[in-house]
Design a protein around this nucleic acid. Structure first.
Length: 900
RNA sequence: GGGCGGUUGGCUCAGUGGUAGAGCGCCUCGUUCACACCGAGGAGGUCACUGGUUCGAAUCCAGUAUCGCCCACCA
């Protein structure tokens, strides 16, 4: 069967994917075999495939396809995340276009709108992952708001609740005024911004004098309830126990002593605003200070800020406070200052730390086992260094604020009585029972849970937990989690906590943290910068295989990948090369196909060893080495190493040497080369399939129709992945092939340097340095002749006559003479020889120096010394040859001179 | 402030103790039988710097510079 002349990924990829889907090849049944499972990081339903997804999914699908071919009972489970804040923001934006807010609709109608939105767009990313060729089990896809998943969340909540791990607390939390919700500590991004340090004078209330405090946020002074100084600070000893009159307000507040006040910063006196700063909150607790909340949930000043400021935006209030302080002569001075500004991870709004009542989860008890699982190796990180990052975070963990003042999400399963008592339950009835009141008198908590509270359950909930499903029993713990470093804490650590806590077993064995994809200049890709690479556009232009390949080639241990369109284009050239080499092989098989013996397990059956030629033994040996590398690399998730090995095996060794050598051999009737071509191509296709699934399947089908026309079609997806067999490595063949290649390269090189026209076929005389060398060249004359464009190849112990026509070089002890077709340009040949001599001289000097160093000979390993001796001997021999040759050439030149 | 990663030919990157590699780009040559998304040949690196360990360092150690990432409650 023929392959079309040109490969068209756009047509082939979609057709192949449909075929796989229809054949049900992505699914699996729990129960038998060795389980292998990956659960993909669920993308947000607001999301569209971006380059980070593309990388992560290329990695996962590569590993999944590999394990499937290795024979594991493999499944990869996809899903999507409801993404509370992100989705709500999108839907609110839509409403805004209609001039509405969510409050106009009310909670129920708004949530309904969110569901409609998700129906319309929520599965878009599935289609995009399918365009990438991901072999995920779509029949088991989960959305985090699906009924069974919600059940899992409530189970999680209730179990923790009953153990007292969930509590309600009033704390300073990170508040996003735009989202009008609390967010957790790890959803805060801080950014350095140019600001100022303001020095404000607070007059003493009970005596003359004043104290100056430094602050970056003067507007919060309206909520000050104390001034703190360090107890050891002698500058302020006389003020211990004094009170100040807080400017712009009528309040009198105490001066307290607290270690927190740094003597070496500002004036040593710090204003204390317990309602708007985490540190101040803690100082407030230590000194029983009142908490005055002057900034409200909407980011505007509250009534407690005083009538002159109430209702102002934060920034406007700052301006007015500064003006007022100035007018009173209380603003001492202002210094420029870099302020760490906390931003909302989602919407980049400046966050406001403020006092708020929220639900929290105690973390220490959960964090300890999660740390231990990594310490004792039950979970391994790739690259390893992330284990420490993970552990450091767990060891300093703080309680997790899980309530969000949103409408889209899992509503907190806590119900309140009218008199302010509350209790958790899987539903109102359960809560009512626990409270001993009728359900209709209860009101459910208004807040929803942090999205990460639900994704924390991902690996086991997607497998059916809390129900004891067969899937859960078989595939849990899962094998691999691959994700971006930015959600190491948000997500990875939490999954480990829940997995260990609820199932007593880690959720996954290995965690692979992939690199961040940057643009070709090393900058982060972003919509606003417009420097992003759109994976879908790349797929359109070059195909999913090219995109996957380009990403996997770079998926190394580095933390960054610089990525540009060129990469994708170049990956496409490899696919093109593979396609055309396959066309060649299939063409050969058309002619000798009836000689191919096909085994469903082993592929193309090789002929008896005695029938193999040097080139055959060589390529089979090289194949084994490649398989060994790929095997080890994939085992450590080094897709780049695996791909590098395959790339050079396919292109440099198979195409450039073996395929080229097969042409003259076939002309000579060596059909064995056709069998070996088929054997190696089969292995290449299988080895490459996890990386470039579509094109390998396309070729494989045509290939099978040729070599196994009687057998029913079987997808390459379920073919056996080649395993390494070190016994098939053939050192002798590799060494002999080196000679052959050396001879060919030498002839090509000589021709190029001496300007022999490419079309000219030359005569070559080989003087073997050994009987073995003579046999190697003799047995492969046709190959040498074809690859080096040789007209006549003579092997003999004598040197050719007519010295003036021959250029010479040597490969080891074997001398090769090339008839350059006309009279040799003696000065060019002399220049060529002198150049070679110079480099040989340098090598000899270096080598002699090393060997002349007694401590090298004594201390270096014997093998190294021996190798150095061999090198020296070889170079000395080369030098002798070159000198002799130079003498001949010079005397010829002199002779020529004389005849002139 | 703490931690981590990078610094190798023009570009992007491999290479963890034994004579510097690849792809792209560049130069020369080549359209007949898989492929011009190609083939053959070639030029081009004192491996950021300094010091140390070693017979031997791109590779190990210490420090410096520089770029980047993560973490941190300091007004």
């Amino acid at each position: 069967m023929d392959l079309p002349r040109a490969y068209d990924p756009a047509v082939v990829e979609q057709r192949r994917y449909r075929t796989w889907m229809e054949a049900g090849l992505f699914g699996a049944t729990p129960g038998t075999g060795r389980p292998y499972c990956i659960t993909i990081p669920p993308p947000n339903i607001t999301g569209s495939l971006h380059i980070g997804h593309a990388l992560n999914n290329a990695i996962m699908d590569c590993i999944i396809r590999w394990r499937r071919m290795v024979g594991d009972n493999t499944v990869c489970l996809p899903g999507t995340d409801h993404a509370g804040i992100a989705t709500q923001a999108v839907v609110e934006r839509e409403l805004a276009k209609e001039g509405l807010t969510r409050h106009d609709l009310g909670r129920e109608a708004f949530v309904q709108r969110c569901w409609e939105w998700r129906e319309q767009y929520g599965n878009r990313i599935y289609l995009q992952l399918q365009r990438m060729g991901c072999s995920y089990d779509w029949s088991r896809a989960r959305f985090t708001l699906d009924e069974p998943y919600v059940e899992a969340i409530y189970e999680e909540f209730l179990r923790w609740w009953d153990r007292g791990l969930i509590y309600r607390g009033t704390r300073v939390v990170n508040w996003c005024p735009r989202c009008s919700s609390a967010i957790s500590d790890i959803e805060v991004n801080s950014e350095d911004r140019q600001g100022a340090l303001y020095y404000v004078r607070y007059p003493l209330a009970d005596r003359d004098g004043s104290v100056v405090v430094a602050t970056t946020r003067p507007e919060t002074m309206l909520g000050d309830t104390a001034v703190a100084v360090n107890p050891a600070d002698t500058r302020y000893t006389h003020l211990h126990g004094a009170k100040v009159r807080l400017p712009l307000t009528e309040r009198v507040i105490p001066i307290v002593t607290d270690e927190f006040a740094r003597m070496d910063f500002g004036t040593g006196a710090v204003k204390v605003t317990p309602a708007h700063d985490l540190d101040d909150f803690e100082i407030g607790v230590r000194h029983s200070l009142p908490q005055v909340k002057v900034i409200g949930d909407d980011g505007r000043m509250t009534a407690d800020a005083g009538p002159r400021y109430a209702g102002l935006e934060r920034d406007d209030c700052r301006t007015r406070v500064l003006e007022d302080l100035g007018a009173l002569g209380l603003l001492e001075r202002t210094e420029p200052y870099i302020v760490k500004t906390p931003l909302c991870d989602r919407c980049k709004t400046v966050l406001e730390p403020l006092l708020s009542e929220q639900w929290f989860v105690r973390q220490t008890e959960l964090a300890q086992p999660a740390a231990k699982a990594v310490e004792d190796g039950r979970i391994r990180f790739f690259p390893e260094r992330y284990a420490r990052v993970y552990l450091d975070w767990l060891r300093n963990i703080r309680d997790w604020c899980i309530s969000r003042q949103l409408w889209w999400g899992h509503r907190i399963p806590v119900w309140w009585t009218k008199d302010g008592r509350y209790e958790a339950g899987r539903n109102a009835d359960e809560a009512a029972r626990r409270l001993g009141v009728p359900p209709d008198q209860l009101r459910q908590d208004e807040d929803v849970l942090d999205t990460w509270f639900s994704s924390a359950l991902w690996p086991h909930a997607i497998l059916g937990w809390p129900r004891q499903t067969e899937e859960l029993a078989f595939w849990y713990p899962t094998n691999l989690l691959t994700t971006a470093q930015e959600i190491l804490y948000l997500w990875v650590a939490r999954m480990v906590m829940t997995g260990l806590d609820f199932l007593g077993e880690v959720p996954f064995r290995d965690v692979y943290i992939h690199a961040t994809v940057l643009d070709s200049k090393g900058e982060r890709m972003s919509k606003s910068k417009g420097n992003g690479i759109d994976p879908l556009e790349m797929i359109e232009k070059y195909g999913a295989d090219a995109l996957r390949l380009s990403l996997l080639q770079q998926a190394g241990k580095n933390q960054d990948i610089r990525f540009g369109e060129d990469r994708v284009r170049l990956a496409g050239t490899f696919n093109n090369k593979l396609w055309n080499a396959s066309r060649y092989v299939l063409g050969v098989l058309e002619q000798i196909g009836h000689r191919i013996e096909w085994s469903e397990t082993d592929g193309v059956v090789l002929p008896e060893d005695s029938r193999l030629g040097l080139c055959d033994r060589w390529i089979l040996s090289r194949l084994q080495r490649s398989i060994t590398i790929v095997d080890g690399a994939l085992g450590g998730y080094d897709m780049d190493d695996a791909m590098r090995a395959l790339y050079s095996f396919v292109w440099d060794e198979f195409c450039d040497w073996y395929v080229e050598a097969s042409k003259p051999r076939l002309r000579e009737g060596a059909t064995v080369t056709g069998v070996v071509l088929a054997h190696v191509l089969d292995r290449i296709l299988r080895l490459l399939h996890p990386f470039i699934p579509h094109i390998t399947e396309e070729i494989w089908e045509a290939f099978r129709k040729t070599v196994a026309s009687n057998a029913p079609h079987r997808s390459i997806m379920v073919a056996t992945y080649p395993s390494s067999d070190p016994a098939r490595v053939n050192e002798t063949a590799e060494r002999r092939m080196e000679l052959l290649m050396g001879v060919v390269r030498g002839i090509r090189n000589t021709r190029a340097e001496l300007g022999v026209p490419a079309a000219d076929r030359v005569r070559v005389h080989v003087r073997p340095g050994s009987r073995e060398d003579g046999l190697v060249v003799g047995d492969n004359q046709a190959v040498v002749s074809a690859l080096a464009r040789v007209r006549e190849l003579v092997i003999g112990a004598e040197r050719p006559s007519e010295q003036g026509r021959w250029a010479a070089f040597n490969v080891g002890e074997t001398d090769v003479y090339v008839d350059i077709g006309s009279s040799l340009d003696l000065s060019a040949e002399i220049a060529r020889l002198e150049k070679a001599l110079t480099s040989v001289e340098a090598e000899i000097t270096r080598s002699e120096q090393r060997l002349g160093n007694p401590s090298f000979v004594e201390r270096a390993p014997a093998a190294v010394v021996e190798k150095e001796r061999q090198n020296l001997a070889e170079h000395l021999s080369n030098r002798t040859r070159l000198n002799e040759r130079l003498r001949q050439m010079r005397s010829l030149m002199n002779g020529t001179d004389r005849t002139d």
